[in-house]
Design a protein around this nucleic acid. Structure first.
Length: 850
RNA sequence: GGGUUGUUAGCUCAGCUGGCUAGAGCACCUCGUUUACACCGAGGGGGUCGGGGGUUCGAGUCCCUCACAACCCACCA
């Protein structure tokens, strides 16, 4: 035997992937409908996690299916420089050496991280191969490739020229630890216990969680309809502060909640989003009191240089001393924005940054979504995306970090308000028309480049790929990045190209840990895909991770499902071993295959049906159901019945044909094991399974199919009786003249594991009730009587069913309104059930006579 | 505060446009080593589909409502 007894994935997978690459199996064929999947660019800094396994498996199953169907498939791989994320990882390395990013100039840091990424880039590329991803590596794109950067720059310029990008002073979410701003969407909110301080403030008492920002207060606000404070609105009041009395004005604004605290709010426009908005409405000045490193500035007087937290305590103490503190609510719960990487409380800071006017970009996107230019899987995510876009705020794309695409904007050194666009970002100072301009030291938010991924990777605007393949066909991502990636791609895609970037958007849920909790490093319940790959193989991981998963919903990782996948691979392997053994020394050819026996016809009808069902599932991306379909066809039909039948009635050509078709159907799900087997088949020559097409299934005769169904019925009931009655060495008997039973005697005996099927004159014995063939088992009277008890209980069930069916037919509305076929089917079922009951009654009566 | 999803067998979950006796994997019980496979084969037990109401000839599937859970969004100082 060429094949060993069990399939050991690790012995074959690397070679098989190399074979695919060598034979360029994943290169687009140039024939058929273009089908394009742009892979999300995984971060170039870290190994892949289990979520990636799901991500790549879903996409690759679809890709391989489409290839088999004859589409011109391109799976385009890439990598993301992942600006902030990568820098954070690199900073950890620096910290291990006792260094900090602030020890280096930006250019130095950039160069170091570049080298670091080059070293680590290979890790995830090799992992993508291990997952079996059928990507065309010649299309590989990195987000720092010239073409990406250049396109990002030209889109930036166009947005600028169109007035959709502006530079302005706004409140920015700022992490004082990482010293960079973020977009709104990147802020992680947590419920925190923050004491609520009630302090005297001129004639008022007001409640605040942030007494330390009082040095930046430029107003006090009350609700316009609040009778308590009406007399103060519009007036200037004198407040007794820590550093002596000062004057401040009172404004009325509906933002104030009269029921919160005392109904009076201090307004600190430079450090609070709400206050900033109030300040806009009332033309109030903004005064910064916090530095970028998180300490108080000179405005805080004696508190200058203190970190915010310390300053808060000190200010409270000072308030106490001056008897300005009224009371403290220690148990107050508040939602606080934090840095999603380090947990540091996000400080809203007043900063000059580049913003994209998202409301303008969102309008065409909302329209396209409403017009269903993109199909959503699951559909419910469409409304959520529209809802998000309706409320989306301007997008801050400036980041104060080293690792990223430098922003191609230069500021006039003599006129801070004058900015010019220039791609010459390697220069710090450039000269234009005798004026000097300094480069913006910031870089783009990573998502500004990855938001352009579909058209950038395809070579917008002039390449053939772009012309033929944009919009791409199938986009797939985790629901967690729907807004920051999916929605932005739609907005930017429509803006730049006038078209949506993809036709179908599939969103997968999160892979939770086996106990149903979120996977996280801190909980220590993270599953490492590499370990799963090494232990059970790539195919097992693919099948185990997609099994029983529906789009959009999070579901737990299941070791048992991985093992089930592994077992399925072994099943395929052993089917192949069996076929190999059966055909040894014979010259079988799938090309000459033709159905002869009932089993042959039955197998072909199942194959036909499976192919159709499988296609309909995969056309709608129902991957889990598709896998279930293939799994049960191969295991329950092909292996358990057709392979077993082949032991009695061998049709070498068709058996080989069946194996090949089985391998083709299973290939999208289990590419490695199926290709490994394919390569051992002599007659497939030098062909590559990954590039094989699904052909039309050979035709079958329904009459013959019905005959095999009859055989299965007889076999199944025989097995049940044999098992229930613990019969040994038994045989099936029939009266003379039963041609069907005579013809299939050997097959039935073999499948039912009985001694034989014999013709006898004497009709004593336990008759089968589920078949119209008259046959019986030689069962002694005592055991037969026991079996009849079980039969009687089965009869009850059948009777109940019959009553239900009859009732349905007695209902005039059912007969009138239900589809004709359904009514016909019901009638047939009534007849069948009546026959069954009659047969059962016959047996019951016979064994109760004496 | 707004929104979305979920609640189906002991566990993890499928069930697409309403229509066979509601399924799978694992677990469980009985039997079995028949040379493809014990990562196996045969047989079996187990669910009033979260509660209540409605639409329909027919509801796990559609509508309403309640309860519980998870997630997302939002400017309560």
């Amino acid at each position: 035997m060429k094949l060993p007894k069990t399939y050991t994935p690790s012995e074959y997978e690397t070679d098989i992937y190399a074979l695919w690459e060598k034979t360029e199996a994943f290169k687009p064929t140039g024939k058929g409908e273009p089908f394009t999947i742009v892979l999300p660019p995984p971060n170039a800094n870290a190994p892949l996690h289990i979520g990636h396994a799901l991500d790549f498996s879903l996409k690759d199953i679809i890709a391989r299916y489409q290839r088999a169907k004859g589409s011109d498939v391109l799976v385009l791989p890439g990598a993301d420089h992942a600006g902030f994320e990568t820098q954070v990882v690199y900073e950890k390395h620096l910290a291990a050496d006792g260094k900090s990013r602030f020890d280096f100039k930006r250019e130095e840091l950039y160069a170091q991280i570049w080298d670091f990424v080059q070293e680590n880039k290979g890790v995830f590329e090799s992992q993508m191969r291990k997952f079996g991803t059928s990507a065309d590596w010649s299309h590989f794109t990195f987000t720092l490739d010239d073409k990406v950067v250049h396109t990002a720059y030209s889109v930036f310029k166009r947005l600028w020229d169109d007035g959709l990008i502006y530079r302005g002073e706004r409140l920015v979410n700022y992490c004082t630890e990482h010293r960079t701003g973020f977009a709104d969407i990147e802020v992680k909110y947590e419920d925190q216990n923050t004491p609520l301080y009630y302090m005297k403030y001129g004639p008022f008492t007001l409640a605040t969680t942030r007494p330390e920002t009082k040095f930046g207060d430029t107003a006090v606000a009350v609700h316009p309809d609040d009778e308590r404070y009406k007399e103060y609105v519009g007036k200037v009041i004198t407040v007794d502060g820590i550093q002596g009395p000062f004057d401040i004005q009172v404004v009325a604004d509906k933002m104030v909640d009269r029921n919160f605290g005392t109904g009076v709010v201090k307004i600190t426009p430079a450090h609070d989003q709400n206050d900033w908005e109030v300040a806009q409405r009332h033309s109030l000045p903004a005064i910064r009191v916090i530095n970028h490193d998180g300490t108080m500035n000179h405005r805080a007087g004696q508190f200058e240089g203190m970190p915010v937290k310390e300053a808060r305590k000190a200010v409270v103490e000072a308030l106490k001393e001056k008897e300005l503190l009224v009371k403290v609510d220690e148990n107050y719960q508040n939602r606080v924005g934090t840095c999603y990487k380090c947990g540091t409380v996000i400080e809203p800071m007043l900063m000059d940054q580049w913003f994209i006017n998202m409301q303008k970009l969102a309008q065409p996107a909302i329209k396209a979504l409403r017009e269903k230019k993109i199909r959503f899987y699951p559909e419910a995510k469409r409304a959520q995306t529209i809802d998000y876009l309706k409320n989306v705020r301007d997008w801050n794309i400036s980041r104060q970090i080293a690792w990223g695409i430098p922003i191609p904007a230069f500021q006039n050194v003599d006129d801070p308000d004058e900015w010019i666009f220039d791609e010459n970002v390697s220069e710090e100072i450039i000269e234009r028309d005798g004026k000097h301009y300094r480069r913006d030291p910031d870089v783009f938010d990573t998502w500004f480049s990855s938001g352009q991924w579909p058209y950038v990777t395809l070579g917008y605007p002039n390449s053939d790929d772009y012309k033929q393949r944009y919009p791409t066909t199938f986009m797939e991502m985790g629901v967690d990045i729907l807004y920051q990636w999916g929605a932005r791609m739609i907005c930017l895609g429509l803006y730049t190209t006038g078209e949506v970037p993809f036709k179908d958007l599939y969103l997968h849920g999160m892979v939770r840990s086996e106990d149903g909790r979120k996977m996280s490093k801190s909980l220590g319940n993270v599953i490492n895909p590499s370990e799963v790959l090494n232990e059970h193989g790539s195919d097992a991981l693919r099948m185990g991770i997609v099994a029983g998963r529906s789009p959009g919903d999070s579901a737990a990782y299941s070791q048992a499902k991985i093992v089930a996948g592994r077992n399925f691979c072994n099943k395929l392997w052993n089917i192949a071993r069996f076929v190999e053994g059966m055909l040894e020394g014979k010259s079988a050819s799938a090309k000459h295959a033709k159905a002869i026996s009932p089993a042959d016809h039955w197998m072909l009808s199942k194959l036909q049906h499976t192919t159709e069902v499988l296609s309909s599932h995969l056309d709608e991306y129902r991957v889990s159901e598709a896998y279930d379909t293939v799994y049960h066809f191969i295991w329950d039909n092909f292996a358990d019945w057709y392979v077993e039948a082949s032991k009695s009635e061998l049709n070498p050509d068709l058996l080989l044909y069946g194996l090949e078709e089985v391998l083709k159907l299973a290939h999208p799900f289990a590419p490695f094991v199926t290709e490994t087997i394919w390569q051992t088949l002599d007659q497939t020559g030098n062909s590559i399974l990954a590039t094989e097409r699904w052909d039309k299934v050979l035709s079958h005769d329904d009459k013959k199919v019905a005959e095999f169904e009859e055989i299965r019925t007889i076999v199944t009931e025989t097995r049940t009786i044999v098992s229930a009655m613990q019969l040994e060495k038994t045989a099936l008997y029939h009266a003379p003249g039963a041609a069907f039973l005579v013809q299939h005697a050997n097959l039935i005996a073999a499948l039912a594991h009985i001694e034989g099927v014999h013709e006898v004159e004497d009709g004593k014995g336990l008759h089968l009730t589920s078949t119209s063939q008259k046959c019986w088992l030689d069962v002694d009277r005592e055991r037969a009587e026991r079996y009849v008890k079980k039969l009687a209980s089965d009869r009850e069930g059948a009777e109940k069913r019959l009553q239900g069916l009859k009732k349905r037919l007695e209902n005039k509305n059912y007969v009138k309104q239900a589809p004709k076929e359904l009514v016909e089917e019901t009638k047939q079922q009534v007849a069948e059930t009546e026959q069954l009951i009659q047969n059962m009654d016959g047996e019951i009566a016979r064994f109760r006579q004496t």
